[in-house]
Design a protein around this nucleic acid. Structure first.
Lengths: 340, 340
DNA sequence: CAACCGATGACAACCGATTGCCAAACGATT
DNA sequence: AATCGTTTGGCAATCGGTTGTCATCGGTTG
């Protein structure tokens, strides 16, 4: 709102302010960061000058001397996977609200890129949030020892985590399919290094055994729509009447392939996805899927990380947060075809 | 590959290396950044020590003293818009290849957030890439004077830009619709502050006049699928038989709404989108849309920015880059309904 | 043999902030 | 008026590098 004089070309520093107010630079620093340490009158002068000069602290310098960078790294395996859209937005919003900057990195589904990124971030970030890590438990633990970390969808003892409870949703999905009369069901697995995929399969297999139906595991398939073609063919070939895919990308890809092959969904084959990503509601047919509060998961992860960074007296920070999920039924699931 | 001794808890600095090699810290700095300035033998010793200590330079310190941060800000209006995901991936890949870090910021379609972010980035980034800026020409120019900048889909004299040539694609879309017999066509406009939307409309209106068909402008509509409902209703109400939407999100939203209302696509209404985002190929019906090389646009933007940052003798950097587009015809367009 | 030269490496200032420590100033108490 | 405690603000070191300047050294040239 202040009438801003044409700024000099160089951003103002605390020294500029100090010169104007006739105080030492350290006093300016104190006035701005430890207001109680300085007389209220000088503080007012300094604040006025700061506003006048449109002063903003240099984050590099601040980072160098204080040791904290005000940045948080967010690592995702594949930035073009819509699942991460909402996650990233969640982290971004929450980080910005807390005055932090988000360093987004696409690790390209590679454990090496992930590891080297972490090493680099160790100096340029105060903490990191790692979604769907492809690293081994040991590597993850080792990294977590060096820099505050929160994982998402990756549960390792000793590392705070936000876990989206898709495993329990698979049970809902299974019951949904069973209620529709399906008895031969397949699980289209995700990457072998994905803990989520493993957990979903474990939960699903247990529930299947419990209910006395057959669920076979097919794959692994890369979490991309392109893999859906192979997944669809594998499902058809295996003779199942319904499948639960590791995620929506694979499921959507399957839908496309099944359509190409003239296999009707859900009349001939039911498909269940996971995550309820962008597109799950408008694909053809709309996808029955396990919906997760993804953006919220991102926010929670940030909160947990910040709690770790600024251990306030108030709240002991949780080290684990389980996000509830539920099955969203749409058009891709239906009654099992009548046996011939 | 080196047998890494258990690292000390604190990352190594050039002083550590200097101590080991018995040289001054400045020599270490030169050996690493200006290899020619130092004897090849000492350089070798220093490099060996650096490798041994697993040394990585502290980016904050480097930034502070050298004035360059090694980071580039990427501003997008809405991080959850799939259009930007390919863009972000393009910038991310190219930046990483050049050794830069990407600072991704979602400006929430707000000019204020955009402006304040730029001001902040001015100190913590070497340059910025602004996609679909919502700022005025003046503000943009003013900011570009303070920090190297490349815009995407925003053409302002004096600011290097990557422009995806969707306006000319609208002509293709129009001809496509005309060839199908449509004569009453609508353009579903995007945000008023979106230059892309304006340019598309201008090109479309000109082409329409040239061809003697009627194209009316409806909207504006927010670039989200939710806005598609209003857009669909507006289109139906206006009595057109085909529409060209500002982008795929609106188009996909329209598809959903039209389906709800029992209006068949393309039998009763043809719909053309723009961008060919994730989902355009598997919505129902698949969307005819103007495809853009989005990821490539991101890469080009980065290249242009880096050329600006490191003005090599070799190539004069282009200040404008036009990315070609083409119409991808799918199922959402068809022959005009027979007039009653 | 003296003058000269390029290569090499050390010194020190600096980037912009933070922070421990100390001293001046001030008011209050006895 | 002397003492004491508390504010308040300055000095200077520090973070980890970069870079301008200068001294030194070995070798070459006239």
């Amino acid at each position: 709102m202040a009438m801003q004089a044409a700024g000099t070309d160089r951003p103002a520093t605390i020294h500029d302010i100090a010169a104007i107010c006739g105080v030492a630079a350290s006093t300016v620093s104190r006035a701005l960061s430890t207001p109680d340490r300085v007389n209220i009158r000088t503080r007012a002068r300094i604040e006025a000058a700061a506003a006048e000069l449109n002063y903003t602290p240099n984050s590099q310098a601040k980072a160098l001397s204080s040791g904290r960078t005000g940045a948080v790294g967010v690592l995702v395996p594949d930035i073009t996977n819509p699942f991460y859209f909402d996650l990233i937005r969640g982290t971004q919003l929450q980080l910005k609200a807390a005055g932090y900057t988000q360093l987004l990195v696409d690790t390209e589904e590679s454990d090496e890129v992930e590891a080297s990124t972490m090493e680099q971030l160790r100096k340029s970030a105060d903490g990191i949030i790692v979604a769907a890590s492809r690293l081994s438990d040991e590597s993850l633990l080792a990294s977590a020892a060096k820099i505050p970390m929160v994982t998402i969808n990756r549960d390792v003892a000793g590392v705070p985590a936000v876990v989206i409870d898709t495993p329990s949703a698979t049970t809902q999905a299974l019951d949904h399919l069973i209620s529709l009369g399906h008895t031969r069901i397949a699980y289209m697995a995700g990457p072998l290094t994905s803990q989520s995929s493993t957990l979903r399969w474990t939960a699903l297999a247990a529930a299947a055994e419990d209910r006395g139906v057959e669920v076979r595991r097919l794959g692994p398939f890369a979490p991309k729509t392109q893999s859906g073609a192979a997944a669809a063919d594998a499902a058809v070939h295996s003779g199942v009447t319904a499948c639960i895919a590791f995620n929506d990308l694979i499921a959507i890809g399957m839908l496309q392939r099944l359509r190409e092959r003239g296999i009707r969904v859900p009349a001939d084959m039911s498909v269940v996805g996971c995550d309820d990503i962008f597109g799950a509601d408008f694909c053809n047919p709309p996808l029955t899927t396990m919906a997760s509060p993804i953006e919220q998961a991102g926010r929670v992860a940030v909160s947990m990380l910040l709690a770790q960074l600024n251990p306030l007296a108030g709240g002991g920070s949780r080290s684990r947060s389980l996000m509830p999920t539920h099955l969203t039924v749409r058009g891709s699931t239906g009654a099992a075809p009548v046996a011939l």
